[in-house]
């Protein structure tokens, strides 16, 4: 079982590394969205600091969403997904490997690029650290919950826009606590522990349920 997981993860990473531009597309999308906000709302330092957390998270939601459409669709189009469904290996394991690859290729780079947000929005080093930590906790949830939507909309016309309609409302808790913790950390007496615990609980729940839900959705879409 672990061998299968590793095999698919390795293949997905190899494929992505041969098309590096796709990783950077997502990354630059994130940076562009983040840097457009000050141009729209003005350069006041106080205000930028107060909106930084929300902007960073919304840009992360959109960037992760952008990459979701490709999560299963390329394997669907060339028939690989059909073959995966027909292997004796349990489908949730295969799905989990693909989710992990998706997170490594889109979620993790966002975590690493977060200091740029700190520079653009005049954040303190401490706040940037919290932002990176919360992104680290929250972005896997985005990949896992999003995978369900990607599986449900597989092969449909206008799949990309449709996914966002289905999935964005489900991202609300991640947005609320992910951004809330960053705001909290800017306060003198801030205590981010409850936020961390809540997001970890949500992460755990999605770890347990989303591979199965995604597998079920894939079976329905490929029937």
């Amino acid at each position: 079982m672990f061998k299968t997981f590793w095999m698919i993860l390795k293949r997905d990473l190899k494929l992505a590394l041969r098309r590096r531009s796709e990783i950077f597309t997502v990354l630059f999308f994130f940076i562009i969205v983040v840097s457009l906000f000050p141009l729209g709302v003005g350069f006041d330092e106080k205000m930028l600091q107060s909106i930084a957390s929300g902007v960073a998270w919304i840009a992360a939601l959109l960037a992760s969403m952008l990459a979701l459409e490709r999560l299963f669709s390329s394997d669907y189009v060339d028939g690989t997904l059909e073959q995966m469904l027909l292997t004796p290996q349990p489908l949730p394991v295969l799905v989990f490997a693909k989710m992990t690859a998706h997170w490594l290729l889109t979620g993790l780079p966002l975590v690493l690029i977060a200091p740029v947000v700190g520079i653009l929005y005049h954040l303190e080093a401490e706040t940037v650290k919290v932002m990176m930590f919360m992104l680290l906790l929250g972005t896997p949830i985005l990949s896992m919950v999003g995978a369900i939507g990607a599986a449900l909309t597989l092969g449909l016309r206008g799949g990309g826009v449709l996914i966002s309609l289905l999935i964005l409302p489900l991202y609300i808790p991640v947005l609320v606590y992910g951004a809330g913790a960053i705001n909290e950390s800017m306060l003198q007496s801030g205590n981010i522990e409850p936020y961390t615990l809540l997001l970890s609980a949500f992460l755990l729940l999605s770890l347990i349920f989303s591979p199965w839900a995604t597998a079920a959705a894939l079976k329905i879409s490929l029937e």
Partner: peptide, 15 residues
């Protein structure tokens, strides 16, 4: 997920 959303909307600041 609705219960989680409900909780997060009702209680955006867990402190």
């Amino acid at each position: 997920i609705v219960p989680v959303i409900y909780y997060s909307v009702n209680c955006p600041n867990p402190n």
